[in-house]
Amino acid sequence: MGDLAYGRGVRQEPGMGPTNRPQTDFPVPAPLKSHGPARIIALCNQKGGVGKTTTTINLGATLAEYGRRVLAIDFDPQGALSAGLGVQTHDVPTIYDLLLSRSAKPADAIQKTRVPGLDVIPANIDLSAAEVHLVNEVAREQILASVLRKVSDDYDVILIDCQPSLGLLTVNALTASHGVLIPLECEFFALRGVALLIETIDKVRDRLNPAIELDGILATMYDSRTLHSREVLDRVVEAFGDKVLETVIGRTVKFPDASVAGAPITQFAPEHAAARAYRQLARELVSRGAVA
């Protein structure tokens, strides 16, 4: 994308979003008459600390609140998604077992969470060895897709929390997915890697998964008090237009507090502005057709 040319900040008018775009009041989605097959969405950014896991947890919880059946896949060896949802990660089947064993059953690895309608397949540090084991496998980029096909009919949406890299695991996630959601921290250096990520998505579309779409770029850790955050968000909108979601996730200490509690912020602090923002995100994705 090149370096940003900083200009003057944009003054936010009443009823307008942070970048002077009209702020849509997305409707509460109607209940589903039936469930499945799932639309699979990878939450992906090779930069760490941009809100992928936080978004996977809270988007999944909010969609479940709206009556969707959601499966979250922890696809990061750090296991932050599993910890943030308070599920077991040791001495239980994990996504690592499903990738490496054809006899392993996805149903045996699925765990319920405290949120009705939200299930998770956990991960732990074992997953860090998966790329080494998979590198010589036939159709190694499509192994996760074959795993998820076995459970897709049971859910409305499957969210994959990717690790911060563009290696074989992330390529597996992109190959298995119908859409990609890119959480992007409102910080200058976070922008520099987006072009590389978009290039990777394009390569996966050309060679492995023609159906994959960019569902949107989600601005995270936004601080309206700083000119820096406002300018970065302005430049993202200039570069990607309508691919940038209207919903913006602000920076708050409530997120780590909720993670320690092993609960989504929609349960930990349901009236907090961050919980309202994730409900807005869920409604926006439904309105855009990214989620049923």
Rank of each mutant, 00 (worst) to 15 (best):
A5M: 13
R8K: 14
G9K: 12
Q12V: 14
E13R: 15
Q23A: 14
F26P: 11
P29W: 03
K33M: 14
I41V: 15
L43N: 03
C44N: 02
Q46A: 08
G51F: 01
L59A: 03
G60Q: 04
A61P: 09
L63C: 04
E65H: 15
G67A: 02
I73R: 11
I73Y: 03
D74R: 04
P77Q: 10
P77H: 09
D91G: 06
P93N: 05
R102I: 07
S103H: 11
K105Y: 03
N124S: 10
I125N: 13
A129K: 11
H133G: 11
V135N: 03
A145V: 01
S152F: 04
D156I: 09
D161A: 05
D161Y: 04
C162W: 02
L169T: 11
T170Y: 05
V171A: 07
N172I: 07
H178Q: 14
P183S: 00
L184N: 08
A190C: 12
L191V: 06
R192C: 14
I201K: 07
R205A: 10
R205S: 06
I217F: 13
I217T: 03
L218A: 03
L218W: 00
T220S: 03
D223A: 12
R225F: 08
S229F: 06
F240R: 07
G241M: 06
D242E: 15
V244P: 11
V248S: 04
G250I: 01
R251D: 01
S259T: 08
A261F: 07
I265Y: 03
T266F: 02
A269W: 06
A277C: 05
Q280R: 14
L281P: 12
L281T: 07
A282L: 12
A290W: 05
V291A: 10
